[in-house]
Design a protein around this nucleic acid. Structure first.
Length: 220
DNA sequence: CACCAGGCAAGTA
DNA sequence: TACTTGCATGGT
């Protein structure tokens, strides 16, 4: 690892010491994780969680049953997650992909080589880089670092990255500066999401943001 | 009332 | 390539 990687590990260690093992993703199966990754897009996890609970309650949270469910039925059930019409179409696109290419089997899908599968997932309507990477890391235990809005906010606040940097550039930065370890990638992203919730979006120097400096010991 | 929350695709210049 | 806009609920 490069010398510059020490900064990444220091941030990790500080956050890890405070938040502990977060045991992400908060989902029970790879399929549930994939569905959750799409439902939480630009939405509070609580809302996505409620949508998943409703699908489970209706007993259609499985690749085949969700694939065969009516659009209107799915839309009504996932309503709490917001953008419910768009997300119904996105879920259906993924389900069609899973059904057509892997006979509806997540296990079959994860037999693919990591970066090839990533490319294929990106070809599915509704799956962008963050969603694809969340499915790969948390659903498939692949060595892929997930970048999200919190990652950008925290690392931007720490002057490590700039707003204009692409998803891929930030992802490579993490992967080039950290030990190539799936569990580390898993926990690091989970920590950034938890810590990110304490950062004000608008005021970078807001005194009410206890995590405004990772150098301080004010972590809440 | 305004603003935020674990994005993405489609349209425009 | 680089912006802009629509999508929508639930909480503060």
């Amino acid at each position: 690892m490069a010398e510059s990687g020490k900064r990444f590990l220091t941030i990790y260690q500080k956050l890890n010491a405070h938040f502990g093992d977060l045991k992400w993703w908060p989902g029970e199966t790879p399929f549930e994780i994939a569905v959750g990754a799409m439902l939480t897009q630009n939405t509070n996890w609580k809302n996505a969680e409620q949508a998943i609970a409703r699908l489970k309650e209706a007993d259609i949270l499985s690749p085949e049953s969700l694939f065969h469910a009516k659009d209107e039925t799915v839309a009504e059930l996932i309503r709490p997650s917001g953008y419910y019409n768009i997300k119904t179409r996105r879920l259906k696109s993924f389900l069609a992909f899973l059904h057509d290419e892997y006979n509806g089997s997540m296990e079959g899908m994860f037999e693919e080589e990591t970066w090839l599968l990533r490319e294929r997932l990106l070809g599915v309507n509704g799956i962008g880089e963050e969603t694809a990477d969340s499915i790969l890391l948390y659903g498939g235990h692949r060595k892929i670092f997930v970048v999200d809005a919190y990652t950008r906010r925290i690392m931007g606040r720490e002057k490590i990255i700039e707003d204009s940097w692409s998803y891929g550039k930030i992802q490579r930065l993490f992967m080039d500066n950290l030990p190539k370890d799936v569990e580390l990638y898993n926990q690091y992203h989970a920590l950034l999401v938890n810590a990110g919730k304490h950062y004000c979006k608008k005021k970078p120097d807001c005194r009410h943001c206890p995590l405004r400096s990772l150098e301080s010991n004010e972590i809440v």
